[in-house]
Simulated scan of single mutants.
Amino acid sequence: MDLYLRRRLVNAVALAAACAAAVLGLLFLGWILWTLVAKGLAGIDWALFTQDTPPPMAEGGLRNAFYGSAVMCLMAILIGTPLGIAAGTWLSEYGAAARIATVVRFVNDILLSAPSIVLGLFVYTLVVQQAGGSFSAVAGALSLAFIVLPVVVRTTDEMLQLVPVQMREAALSLGIPQWKVTVQVLYRSAMPGIVTGVLLALARISGETAPLLFTAFGNQYFTLDVTHPMASVPVVMYQFAGSPYTSWQDIAWAGALVLTLFVLLTSLVARAIVARKRVNHD
């Protein structure tokens, strides 16, 4: 009986500590979100989306930064997604029995957990310095693509492994080539999970600052040339939030709110895709 009471006491203490930690974390999260909404709403207006970043003590917006972030994120997705899907397909379908597959998965896990600033420095050394010291949106997209790549590789590999073996055997028994089985059978079954991984990677890179500081750098003006420095929302937030100018701080808070809403929307879409896949599967 004493042992039973001791176990119940330990369980009650552990449960209380876990609940207290969860409540504390939710309180801080709610505080952060409330501060973000309270300060960010004050800077949301039409000028935020139609005017470029202003000089000190002047009115302006984030049009050039929104465009730059959209372009670099889109380029990163276009670079990282095909390579990630191809690598994940090879790991799952062609190189599963090879020793090198274990090495590739290990390196991919390292890249997945690598600090983004390290990836930015790598692209800075490889692209910016080698290209004559020119910052550009292309270099920024490459640094973000290195963040997208391991996420897509891991997602594709796991989603294809979840496809039942019977589907492969049934398709191969009909005389269908392996590549056609992969494209027409396996991809169709795993596509919702792969798309979810791509959307989560997009949500992650949309808020990255450190890689862009070393690659895209920033630009106060609107530009369509991806071979030159280009503004981005995270970099502008980093620059404006620490400034002594109230107008810049308001723009930084508004940009943070818009970026948070975008990440939230992307995450909700990813969850909706997963939920729809489960419903269709059931």
Rank of each mutant, 00 (worst) to 15 (best):
A58Q: 14
M57W: 00
V226D: 06
V258P: 10
L121V: 11
L212P: 00
S116E: 00
G207I: 09
A21G: 04
L199A: 08
R276K: 14
L268C: 05
Q184L: 06
A131C: 01
Q184H: 13
E169Q: 10
V279A: 10
L112M: 08
M237N: 09
C73N: 07
A270N: 06
L202K: 07
I117T: 14
V151S: 06
L186Y: 01
L174E: 11
A96H: 13
P55S: 03
F217Y: 15
W253L: 09
L74H: 00
P192T: 03
V269P: 05
T125C: 07
S173D: 08
T50P: 05
F214W: 14
L48T: 00
T209C: 08
W179Y: 08
G197M: 13
V37K: 00
P164Q: 06
L142P: 02
G197L: 13
T227I: 06
R276Q: 15
S189G: 09
A270E: 01
P56I: 07
V195L: 15
T209W: 05
D52F: 01
D45Y: 08
D225K: 08
V153I: 15
G193M: 12
A170Q: 14
Y238M: 15
L162Y: 03
G197D: 10
W90L: 13
R204A: 08
I79P: 02
V71M: 11
L3R: 06
A145S: 14
L5W: 02
A14D: 11
V226R: 07
A256R: 04
T209P: 01
L149W: 02
G132L: 09
W90D: 01
R105Y: 01
V152A: 12
G95Q: 05
A96G: 06
L5M: 05
T81K: 04
L202H: 06
Q51I: 02
I32S: 04
S267L: 11
A145W: 00
T266N: 06
L174T: 09
A96Y: 13
L259P: 03
T266I: 12
K180N: 01
T89G: 01
L26R: 14
V235K: 01
V185Q: 09
I205E: 05
S173P: 02
H281W: 08
V274A: 13
L41Y: 08
T50S: 11
G175E: 11
A241Y: 07
F49S: 03
